[in-house]
């Protein structure tokens, strides 16, 4: 997006967007949406990983919730039961989840397409069952997970947590942006185009796929740890197979061709579920399903890409009008 907008207004646009993000949690602005925004931030982090995987390597994972869950649980168990510092436990959780993804990545990525989808789904189900059986507290989950803090500053209100989550979320987005623009990104697009061709020019296809898979797992794990340390209670229900499906929905709705689509996807689904459809009582899921279908039917390339197109057309018309007189 940024590349297209190059010009003197670029920085002002970015500044305005950033300002908007900063102002959201204030009571006099959009304070009532703080908690929804926190969830949007967390889901964006999980979805970006999937966008990279799906949009740039063309491979589907139906098991992202498993990494979201292991991140949350490892971090929670370390900090609550073993008394490790929450920041350190977050880091260990991310490393452990990444290692886990690496180990299973090689056998699983010998599969592709629908077989990969069903294999990752199976993985998600296995992790879900293990969390329920072996996780402290069983299906009811574990409580009393410590909050994150810096020095004496404890992230104990949604106002403070909002900034924490969005700091991580933007960091994840920027890192992903850099990856997409780098040599790795070009390699990924080559893989998406044609694996055989990519291989012929010396790209180690399997290795790249597994790397991205590991990265997506680390993102999901970070999001999971952040969730655990701010809800203070987690249970396996937040990481079941249905959650993996919702994450795919977010990725596709937002638009796979761009990592910034992840925000749109997560925001659309969260705002629909947690805000717009609340007044409809038991009709909520009917309308949710309908909107999901309509958006995908009429904008199959995703909201973000569609909006970018519209914005491009508007700019073009604006420029023409400017040139006419």
């Amino acid at each position: 997006m940024l590349a297209r907008l190059k010009g003197k207004w670029t920085y002002f646009v970015i500044a305005a967007l950033l300002l908007f993000l900063i102002l959201i949690p204030f009571r006099w602005f959009l304070g009532q949406y703080t908690v929804i925004m926190i969830f949007i931030g967390l889901f964006t982090m999980v979805t970006v990983g999937l966008c990279l995987l799906l949009g740039y390597t063309g491979q589907v994972s139906l098991g992202q919730a498993a990494f979201y869950g292991t991140g949350a649980y490892i971090s929670a168990v370390l900090s609550k039961i073993c008394g490790v510092n929450p920041w350190l436990s977050m880091l260990i959780a991310a490393a452990a989840t990444g290692a886990f993804a690496y180990v299973i990545g090689y056998p699983i990525f010998r599969l592709r397409g629908n077989y990969l989808a069903v294999a990752t789904l199976g993985l998600g189900v296995i992790v879900y069952i293990l969390l329920r059986q072996l996780g402290p507290g069983g299906p009811d989950g574990m409580a009393g997970i410590p909050y994150l803090s810096i020095g004496g500053f404890v992230f104990d209100t949604s106002f403070k947590r909002y900034f924490l989550v969005w700091f991580f979320c933007l960091a994840v987005l920027l890192i992903s942006q850099n990856i997409v623009r780098s040599r790795t990104g070009r390699a990924l697009r080559a893989i998406h185009g044609s694996e055989a061709a990519a291989e012929s020019i010396g790209i180690n296809v399997d290795q790249f796929k597994v790397k991205i898979f590991v990265l997506s797992a680390v993102y999901a794990s970070l999001a999971g740890s952040l969730l655990a340390h701010q809800m203070s209670h987690i249970s396996p229900g937040s990481f079941g197979p249905l959650v993996s499906v919702i994450i795919i929905v977010m990725a596709v709705i937002g638009g796979l061709a761009s990592i910034w689509g992840a925000i749109f996807g997560a925001a659309t689904v969260c705002i629909l579920k947690y805000e717009l459809l609340l007044g409809f009582g038991e009709w909520d899921i009917v309308i949710y399903g309908l909107i999901l279908m309509l958006v995908t039917i009429f904008m199959p390339e995703g909201l973000f890409v569609r909006l970018r197109e519209l914005f491009g057309q508007w700019r073009l018309r604006y420029a023409q009008r400017g040139a006419e007189p």
């Binding site: 589907v60 796979l256 949710y288 390339e301």
Partner: peptide, 21 residues
């Protein structure tokens, strides 16, 4: 214009819709 992945998402939407009804 939808890709296969988008079509799969449409079936997810349809599933939620049918369940809701």
């Amino acid at each position: 214009r939808a890709s296969v992945v988008s079509l799969i998402i449409i079936t997810i939407g349809a599933a939620i819709f049918i369940r809701g009804i």
